[in-house]
Computed example of a mutant assay.
Amino acid sequence: MASSVFYSFHYERDVNRVQLVQNINALEGQPLLTPQAWESVRRRGTAAVAEWIDEQMKYKKAVIVLVGRETASRDWVQYEINKAWADKRPLLGIAIHGLSSFGSVDSAGPNPFDAAGLPASRIPLFDPTQRDYLGRIDSKATYTRLADSLVTWSTMGVVRK
């Protein structure tokens, strides 16, 4: 898979975790909007949001869903998953709940591919989450595993034929 990807995620809850993923600098993703810019797009209505997504996804070679606790329930994530599937773009998921956002980690969320009605068993969902000897999520070790694995995992997305 190429180094140019579209990241799908729940903006309000996970943007800080997504910034960590982008800071790995292993893949080229779409620019992250500031909260004000995202609100500006959203205020223009659903057609404007869909247009922004379509334009950002247009030249990307794959779609990576960055899965947090509430990602599966987000309408725009579902739109992005279904668009990737319809466009026959490579598609995969990576769990990000184990990355730190302002010093705290989150719990895992449901599989967003199930929620989209796609054959989730065929779409890889990687989880870099690492735990310490007490079973607590170790966000630094999780980040290191993600950094070490991101490029490899990005080559394993499912392409619909």
Rank of each mutant, 00 (worst) to 15 (best):
D87Q: 08
N25V: 04
V63Y: 09
A50F: 04
R42S: 06
V65S: 05
I137M: 11
N82M: 10
V158Y: 15
Y133S: 15
D106M: 09
P90T: 09
G157S: 14
F6R: 02
Q30M: 03
E28I: 04
G103R: 13
R74V: 01
G68C: 05
W52S: 02
V5L: 01
S104R: 14
K60C: 05
Q36C: 05
K83S: 10
I123R: 08
D87V: 07
K60Y: 06
E55K: 10
A115F: 06
S100K: 10
L92E: 00
P124W: 07
T142G: 13
V15G: 01
E55G: 06
W153H: 08
G135Q: 13
K161P: 14
Q36S: 09
Q19Y: 10
R43H: 13
P124D: 11
N16S: 11
V5E: 00
K140V: 15
Y79S: 02
V105S: 10
L92V: 01
R122L: 11
A86C: 04
Y11K: 00
Q78K: 07
E80I: 00
T71Q: 05
A84M: 05
A141N: 11
V159Q: 15
F9N: 00
A86D: 08
V65K: 02
D132L: 15
Y79W: 08
L134E: 14
D87E: 10
F113I: 08
V151S: 12
G109Q: 03
P31W: 02
G117S: 03
D114K: 08
A26K: 08
T34G: 07
I53S: 00
T142M: 12
R160C: 14
A62D: 02
R74W: 01
V159E: 15
F9M: 01
A37Y: 07
L66V: 01
L118D: 10
A147W: 06
A116Q: 05
I81T: 09
V151T: 14
